[in-house]
Design a protein around this nucleic acid. Sequence first.
DNA 1: CCTGAGGGAGAACGTTCGGTCTCTTTGAGA
DNA 2: TCTCAAAGAGACCGAACGTTCTCCCTCAGG
Lengths: 208, 208
Amino acid sequence: MSRGTGVGSTSEARARLLSTATKIFYAEGIHSVGVDRIIAEAQVTRATLYRHFSGKEELVLAYLDQADRGIRAQTAAAEASSESAPDKVRAVSRSIAEGIRSPGFRGCAFLNAVAEYPDPAHPIHQAVLAHRQWFLDTVTELLARAGCEPADAAGRHLVMLRDGAMAAGCLFDPQLVCDTFLQGVEGLLQARTASAPAPSTTAFPPRA
Amino acid sequence: MSRGTGVGSTSEARARLLSTATKIFYAEGIHSVGVDRIIAEAQVTRATLYRHFSGKEELVLAYLDQADRGIRAQTAAAEASSESAPDKVRAVSRSIAEGIRSPGFRGCAFLNAVAEYPDPAHPIHQAVLAHRQWFLDTVTELLARAGCEPADAAGRHLVMLRDGAMAAGCLFDPQLVCDTFLQGVEGLLQARTASAPAPSTTAFPPRA
DNA sequence: CCTGAGGGAGAACGTTCGGTCTCTTTGAGA
DNA sequence: TCTCAAAGAGACCGAACGTTCTCCCTCAGG
């Protein structure tokens, strides 16, 4: 009844469904949440869910797709915020750290999802692999332009630090995790580049 | 004598149950595996499971406890295999890399479990936190004896690399992940130790 | 001998799961 | 005005979930 005013061509119920699924799947996991819970919280009937998605699996895929788009946009924005290639790497790393520090952080949505779908042939598993491949490629390209040699090894190193930071960010003190991560990135940039252009303030040798 | 589900029980059926649960939970996750599956594969009846464990949750806790004991033993063995403190760090890291390279590797049992139990108050979540705290303390102590300063930052850095390596080890080429991890550990040791030269020229070996 | 615990076999519990169904109401465009 | 897709409401399905139960067999210790 009093649902909404000016309903456009884009389905409002579908948007509510997806945003609710995103919130709950990320916060509580996938297998442990039933569709009853999602339709109740989205204030949508059962039939509406299956009108927009073929099943729970497609809803999960839509959730991951939305997370993927969000991360790509966030990364692009961070990349665009700096001029030099090394500073682009730093900006992307800082945006990752901001995510870890933000309230409600529950780790990497993709690492969490793949822990629940270990079968490599499963569509959800493959969606995670695709996202990770994009991130590795993006970051390797950035490091190459920053003069890191060899760029692929540097890219794997940066991804490894990110994975560790995302995994630990909701298990340890997020601030300490972010500090460790950003120090690691700085060390990586300085050690792998020949010229070693440091941003005057923070260096790898720690403060106190 | 031993009432309830004491750890010291010497029951043959219980051992079969636990080893089967370990295998299946690690390979396929926890929520997605029912007790029917476990009792069938362990060739044990339903009643026998509930004679030894109060429920599925206690079985999961026993699974994690067994994994914890295994990792502690493996770490102790690696530690004992070397003389100098820095070499002990290298030996522990190498044993981690061996695990990642070994067939059937499906990531860190604890990171996988905590992805399915995000609630910090849940006993399973807390078991993961306890294991991680032990590992951080162990590794920090080792790095302190290796002359790393400050040891706590170095410990967090090493744990972050390990977490990243364990997370990626079953998503990328394990060999590349191990190489990246061990290079990261070597760089950490050389950069954080006062005695080592550690100028940024030779901090990270460019290529193995 | 008897006893009693451990285990096998399996029925059954109530709940929740993901998914399908019918029927009605709504609201915007032709 | 009429039409039709979107959405609500909710009954319903078979299966799987974790759990409890009864009954019977076996075998070592008293």
